[in-house]
Design a protein around this nucleic acid. Structure first.
Length: 879
RNA sequence: GGAGGGUUAGCUCAGCCGGGAGAGCAACUGCCUUACAAGCAGUAGGUCACAGGUUCGAGCCCUGUACUCUCCACCA
């Protein structure tokens, strides 16, 4: 008696146990040194949130690839990341401190960082534990925080290098400012949303004129305080006489010029635009061109500065109301119009961003983007699916300089030092205490770097760069990046140009892009909607394997998917099916001997064994091919069909009789084939559903410790049995036809019948009578090529045979006639379709020979079937 | 404004190199059959959004149209 599985499929019983064991045995560490490397890095998930479906999907796909490649003999490395510094993390820590009645300022930078690290360790560790439940086979011993010493060294090194090459500069530029997070954010971090607003039509008086005004409109009247010009288009006849004149800014009384600039569109609004260089990116550009003064009117938290006593301290929306009121009172407000426009918001907190001029650090993108564009254009880096490369290229080709400084504390501090005395700026990877010029104390720039600045270095910083480590030599460039399309601009693009710039090599070859997991209604999962599905909850309910199955099956790369209860149930049902099939096989095994390919007595196998081996073998070939092409959903679909429809529904049923004949040779070979096919199928399925496959594989007779470190099955020419496959297909068709007929006629399964199979090819059926007895409820079967007396019988007709079932008394003659006529019609349709194709000279001449032959065969089959059907109908009619 | 998806069974979605439309769920009929009712055996259900074109042959390739989603841009 072989080992047995638990009666009930209960993943919680073995998933954790197996994971711990894999970990303990070191299976996650790189294996097979010297073999071809396959390496990937894990996107650093943000620690502020729970593990969500996006992580689960990323992780499942990554793990799938790594497990597959490892079993294929690659030297695999999967570096896990667990956290990166971010605005959201800082906000979370600040929030937590507020609950304790503390502020950042109170505890100071040192105290804050201490807390941040505590938080990081606590939650970073929690994410790690959560990922383990997904079966992640990444090498946790190499786990990195982007804030780690090692990675920090890389960050400083990169900063200094870019600075020395002149690719990083510090300057006063207009940037996106979040008044809530109190930091600058990059263009990519701004999300635009349509908001209902107003258009305030104003008029500014022209200085020294007879009450002449210039009319303009604005959506943000409060910025009037910072206006330093009004611009018109140089071609605009209406305003030509005013260009160069001076206006009096209402409420403020400032004298501002009228300038001519191409930026202004003549046919939008009045054709005149107020220019506020400090608070609008376009106005800033205009200001640069015309040497206009830049007047900042708002504080960092978006309140009016003390320079305007009437409004000082008001936040921007209060100020807006007050200013509109005062404009109206002063006769400067012409009218108010409802207007819907796009407003930029902070993608982290949703606050409306405030464009603001400030001193920030920037990366010059032009020279960095060039090779990054080329690498994708040349196909050196490949997006899967390919269409995302367009997305990427469009982004890269339209880049503005990247604002990398953040006014946060939780992040990599910018390695720039200022001398308060002589004003010297020193950029260096080694902290500098005194000014190299005057010897006075230096002060480090208080700002930190954009989180994506350090994340961009991930593929090589995690491998030890800038040191020339063995990991770096072996595993860089990495093989495949797996991520969602929403992150291409933030992360993928920046990894590409950073990798090329700093290592001279692309960071990875393939980018497998997946879609978003949406809820059952197709909505994006979000915290505010509360429609997020917790992957850990799903694992508790359905098991990790079911979750992974649901995430991979029926999906193609780059497409969004909906998560629904039904999908997870279906996945769990599949796992349950496998479990029970394995249980059945194990119940029927006598020994514990593993079966390898060499142990299969190929020459002596009955047709059904050759048939299943042949089907199995084809599945191996197809699955490998699909996996190599990243067609993960297709590969899994094929495995599903093979396991459920072919192995369970047919093969197991076909061999049941042999399994009860204990002690016979036939019994022993059936056991061997079952073991061989099932254990290899578990290996095939392992990358998709690691736990159940491991549990079953280990319970089956096996060689080695774990399916995880065994070889992925290979396709073998010796297992290809086309003749036996064809023969079994005929038998299965006939069994289906009989079942179908009995079912339609409502014949109870207990009513057994003696079958006559009439066929031109008796050899295909001889020796397989027992299958009909078991699966087609036959009490006995005769196979012959001669037509026999069909009186009292109904006929189940297939392309290859006619099965006579003596149940005429059970059925209604008219119903049976109707059924046969329906079949006749469909057979006629088949014949005429084939014939018309064959009658088409172009088809015969131009279509591949294989296809033409196929049509000929179809025509033959159809006419044979027709003949049988006509005879059956005639026979019935004459009764 | 620019770009890219999607439109296939009642629902959710697959469909590879162009070669006779598939799955899961739901529905209907019958079944506790020597693993599995989370199951088994059947049945029904489609003008592949629409209109043209290329081709011997189009769900698939091309052009246009409609509806829809997403990303990018951001005219005050």
């Amino acid at each position: 008696m072989a080992k047995q599985l638990e009666k009930k499929y209960d993943p919680s019983e073995f998933e954790e146990r197996l994971y711990a064991e894999w970990n303990e045995k070191g299976y996650f560490r790189p294996g097979r040194p010297g073999a071809k490397p396959f390496s990937i890095v894990m996107p650093p998930p943000n620690i502020t949130g729970q593990l969500h479906m996006g992580h689960a999907l990323d992780n499942t796909l990554q793990d799938l690839l790594v497990r597959y490649k490892r079993m294929c003999g690659f030297n695999t490395l999967w570096v896990p990341g667990t956290d990166h510094a971010s605005i959201a993390t800082e906000a979370k820590i600040v929030e937590k401190m507020r609950e304790e009645g503390l502020t950042k300022e109170q505890i100071g930078r040192e105290g804050f960082l201490e807390r941040a690290w505590d938080w990081n360790r606590q939650y970073g560790g929690r994410i790690t534990e959560q990922l383990k439940k997904l079966g992640s086979s990444c090498d946790w011993s190499r786990q990195r925080f982007t804030m780690d010493e090692g990675c920090s060294e890389a960050v400083r090194e990169v900063f200094v290098r870019l600075y020395r090459k002149g690719l990083i500069y510090r300057g006063n530029r207009i940037i996106n400012w979040c008044p809530h997070c109190l930091t600058s954010i990059s263009d990519a971090e701004v999300e635009y949303e349509e908001q209902a607003g107003h258009f305030w039509h104003l008029r500014y008086p022209v200085k020294d004129s007879d009450g002449e005004f210039i009319y303009l409109a604005t959506t943000r009247p409060e910025t009037l305080l910072g206006d330093t010009a009004v611009a018109v288009n140089p071609k605009d006849e209406r305003y030509r006489h005013l260009v160069g004149k001076t206006l009096i800014l209402p409420l403020v009384g400032r004298e501002i010029p009228v300038v001519a600039d191409e930026y202004v569109e003549m046919d939008f609004g009045t054709g005149a635009v107020k220019i506020t260089p400090a608070h609008d990116p376009n106005d800033f550009e205009v200001g640069l061109r015309h040497g206009l003064e830049v007047i900042n009117v708002l504080t960092p938290d978006a309140r009016v500065t003390d320079d305007y006593p009437a409004y000082a301290g008001m936040d921007r929306y209060e100020a807006r109301k007050a200013i509109v009121r005062d404009l109206e009172a002063g006769g400067y407000l012409v009218r108010v119009e409802n207007y819907s426009h796009n407003v930029g918001t902070c993608y982290r907190c949703g606050t409306t961003i405030e464009p603001r001029v400030s001193l920030q650090w920037f990366v010059r993108m032009e020279s960095l983007a060039k090779p990054a564009i080329q690498a994708v254009k040349d196909g050196d880096i490949r997006f899967i699916p390919e269409r995302f490369s367009k997305n990427y290229l469009h982004w890269m080709e339209n880049l503005r300089d990247w604002c990398i400084s953040r006014q946060l504390w939780w992040g990599h501090r910018i390695p720039a030092f200022y001398c308060d005395d002589c004003g010297e700026l020193t950029v260096t990877a080694e902290p500098q205490a005194v000014c190299p010029k005057c010897g006075k104390p230096m002060r480090q720039d208080p700002d930190t770097l954009d989180t994506w600045f350090s994340s961009a270095l991930w593929p090589f910083s995690t491998l030890g760069w800038p040191n020339r480590t063995e990991d770096l030599e072996t595993f860089y460039p990495t093989s495949t990046l797996v991520t969602g399309y929403d992150i291409i601009t933030f992360w993928v693009s920046r990894m590409i140009f950073s990798g090329l710039e700093h290592t001279g090599k692309k960071p990875f070859s393939d980018v497998l892009v997946h879609g978003l997991v949406r809820d059952a209604q197709g909505r994006k999962m979000s915290k505010s909607l509360g429609n997020g599905i917790d992957p850990l909850e799903l694992i508790r309910t359905y098991g990790c394997d079911a979750l992974r199955f649901a995430l991979v099956s029926g999906n193609s790369p780059g497409n969004d998917m909906r998560a629904s209860e039904e999908k997870f149930e279906a996945a769990r049902n599949f796992a349950n099916k496998i479990w029970n099939a394995a249980r059945f096989v194990l119940m029927n095994l006598d020994g514990e001997e593993p079966v390898s390919f060499a142990d299969l007595p190929l020459a002596d196998l009955p047709d059904e064994d050759k048939w299943i081996l042949s089907r199995y073998n084809r599945t191996v070939g197809e699955v490998r091919e699909n996996l190599d092409r990243y067609e993960l959903g297709v590969a899994l679909g094929k495995l599903y069909d093979f396991i459920w429809d072919v192995f369970c529904d047919w093969y197991i049923e076909l061999v049941k009789a042999r399994l009860s004949e204990k002690g016979t040779e036939s019994n022993r070979t059936a056991q061997k084939v079952l073991i061989y096919v099932l254990s290899n199928t578990m290996a095939l399925l392992h990358p998709f559903m690691p736990f159940i496959t491991e549990e079953i594989w280990r319970t089956l007779p096996h060689e080695g410790d774990s399916v995880m470190v065994s070889d992925y099955p290979v396709c073998r020419a010796e297992l290809d049995f086309p003749r036996e496959e064809a023969s079994m297909r005929k038998v299965i068709d006939a069994i289906r036809a009989v079942r179908n007929l009995r079912s339609e006629m409502n014949v109870s399964r207990s009513r057994r019948a003696h079958l006559h199979i009439v066929t031109s090819e008796p050899s295909a059926f001889l020796g397989k009578e027992k299958f009909f007895e078991r699966l087609a409820f036959a009490s006995g079967v005769e196979v012959g090529s001669e037509t026999v007396n069909a009186d009292g019988s109904v006929r189940a007709i297939t392309d290859d045979c006619e099965v006579l079932i003596p149940l005429a008394d059970m059925i209604d003659r008219e119903e049976e006639l109707a059924r046969l006529r329906k079949e006749l019609t469909s057979a006629e349709g088949e014949l005429s379709r084939a014939q018309s194709k064959l009658a088409n000279a172009d088809f015969v001449a131009k279509a591949p020979q294989k296809l033409v032959d196929g049509e000929r065969a179809k025509a033959e089959n159809a006419s044979a079937k027709l003949e049988k059907l006509r005879a059956a109908i005639a026979h019935l009619e004459n009764l």
